[in-house]
Amino acid sequence: MEGTGPAPGDAMIRLAGVGKTYADGTVAVHDLHLEVGRGEVVCLVGPSGCGKSTTLKMINRLIEPSTGTIEIDGVDVTRSDPVALRRGIGYVIQQVGLFPHQKVVTNVMTVPLLYGETKATARRRALELMELVGLDPATYADRYPHQLSGGQRQRVGVARALAADPPVLLMDEPFGAVDPVVRVRLQDEFRRLQRDLGKTVVLVTHDLDEAVRMGDRVAVFASGGRLAQLGTPAEVLGRPADDFVADFVGSTRGLRRLSVTMVVAEHLEPLDGVSAGALGAVVEVGSSLEDALAAMLRDDRGVVGVKDGARFVGVLTPNGVHRALRASLAE
Rank of each mutant, 00 (worst) to 15 (best):
Met1Phe: 06
Thr4Met: 05
Pro6Tyr: 07
Ala16Trp: 06
Ala16His: 09
Gly17Glu: 11
Val18Thr: 06
Gly19Arg: 01
Lys20Gly: 01
Gly25Gln: 06
Ala28Val: 14
Val29Ser: 05
Asp31Phe: 00
Leu32Val: 15
His33Lys: 11
His33Arg: 12
Val41Arg: 06
Val41Tyr: 00
Leu44Cys: 06
Val45Gly: 04
Val45Met: 14
Pro47Gln: 05
Gly49Cys: 13
Cys50Ile: 04
Thr54Ala: 10
Leu56Cys: 13
Arg61Trp: 08
Glu64Tyr: 02
Ser66Gln: 07
Thr67Lys: 07
Asp73Val: 12
Gly74Asp: 14
Gly74Ala: 14
Val75Ala: 11
Thr78Tyr: 10
Ala84Asp: 15
Arg86Cys: 07
Arg87Lys: 13
Ile89Val: 15
Tyr91Ser: 02
Gln102Phe: 08
Lys103Ile: 05
Thr110Trp: 10
Leu114Glu: 07
Glu117Phe: 12
Leu127Glu: 13
Glu128Ser: 06
Leu129Arg: 03
Leu132Met: 14
Val133Tyr: 03
Ala138Pro: 13
Gln147Asp: 12
Gln152Ala: 11
Arg155Gln: 08
Val158Pro: 03
Ala163Glu: 04
Ala163Thr: 03
Pro166Val: 01
Leu169Pro: 01
Glu173Ala: 09
Pro180Arg: 06
Val181Asp: 08
Gln194Gly: 13
Gln194Asp: 09
Arg195Glu: 08
Leu197Pro: 11
Val202Asp: 05
Val202Gly: 07
Leu203Cys: 14
Val204Arg: 13
Leu208Trp: 02
Asp209Pro: 04
Arg213Asn: 06
Ala219Lys: 03
Phe221Thr: 07
Phe221Leu: 14
Gly224Asp: 05
Leu227Glu: 04
Gln229Trp: 03
Gln229Arg: 09
Glu235Ile: 08
Glu235Gly: 06
Pro240Ser: 10
Gly254Trp: 15
Leu255Gly: 04
Arg257Ala: 02
Arg257Gln: 08
Arg257Asn: 01
Val263Glu: 03
His267Asp: 12
Leu271Lys: 01
Ala278Trp: 05
Leu279Asn: 09
Gly280Pro: 06
Ala281Glu: 03
Val282Pro: 06
Glu284Gly: 05
Ser288Arg: 05
Glu290Phe: 02
Ala294His: 05
Ala295Met: 09
Ala295Thr: 13
Met296Lys: 09
Met296Trp: 12
Met296Thr: 11
Asp300Glu: 10
Gly302Ser: 06
Gly305Trp: 02
Val313Tyr: 02
Pro318Gly: 04
Asn319Met: 13
Gly320Tyr: 00
Val321Glu: 00
Val321Asp: 02
Val321Phe: 00
Arg326His: 13
Glu331Leu: 11
